[in-house]
Amino acid sequence: MNPQTYALSPPGNKALGAFGGCATKRRQLISLTPLIDVVFILLVFFMLASSFLDWRSIDLNTPGKGRSEAQLEGAVLVEVRNEGLRLSGEAITHETLIQRMRENSDRRVLVKPAQGVVMQDTVAVLDSLATAGVSDLSLIADQAR
């Protein structure tokens, strides 16, 4: 039994080294189709499971417990309303806000979104202030209502 199988195998091994025989022998053993099936399944999995959203972040300052009300006094108040921006009570556009804040970018800025203002508008104001070089930013709530 053993000699027989042994005698049969060498021609096969030789064929592996030869030009034509190799490929046909291999394909007979392993078909490509199941492999492609698996690759397709993996492809579909990665297409559905992966997300391409490029997340960024804005750091929000936390007024720590050390900060007292006194330190809020020198701060500039920017109100965000549905009809526009207000800098210390005066109606203002994004462009003028950037210009004004560039001159005193070391001041503390409080951003106060009014009732009914959506997050996108508030983030736009934070963006404008960041463009003006303001680093000390805080969001505060509208206490009026």
Partner: peptide, 9 residues
């Protein structure tokens, strides 16, 4: 982006 900012604050 459409959430009311007051709620987030």
């Amino acid at each position: 982006g459409n959430a009311p900012a007051a709620r987030i604050v």
